[in-house]
Amino acid sequence: MANGPTQFAVLSRILHWLMAAMLLTMLFIGVSMVASLGDYHRLVAIHRPLGIMILILAVVRLVNRMFTTLPPFPPTMSDWERRVASASERFLYALMFALPLVGWGMLSAGDYPIVMFGPLHLPPLLPANRMLYAVLRETHTVLAFLLFATFLAHLSAVLFHTLVVRDRLVHRMALWSIRFHKAKIETD
């Protein structure tokens, strides 16, 4: 353990915070645009290309994840906590792919052009089909709420470890490089 990494790889950390900001922005844009009249068009025009950006970054992130060594869990994390953390990580990855793909598929099934910017548009992912549209539209909302709930749980867990257990869990993902004070962790 002493020789292993204490932080995630630099690219992993950059992708984590970049995507955290993008996903949170997307969730807020998504939930406000469906309730909005005056801003609806502006928000949708951001929502579509940002979703595709997230999909592209999700691919980069998954590839990066497969080829990097992770820092070990801190000893303050119990067995069940580790299992929940790993499962929620897999779930978040699945959602990062599923949400944009369902959105793209939903617009295809709804017979909409998938407009990005200017003349740039994507091909339909699925044939036009009314029931398929309705199901995917609903799925898109449900997955978004699940993503928001999982994000809140993830944030709570990290805050709990950082503020209550004081094991500096968040330092593993800090954008800057952190020297680990091993003694400090063990005595805390």
Partner: peptide, 12 residues
């Protein structure tokens, strides 16, 4: 923008 939003709601 309002029509776009309402049409979408009716469509869904």
């Amino acid at each position: 923008s309002a029509r776009s939003a309402v049409y979408s709601q009716s469509f869904t």
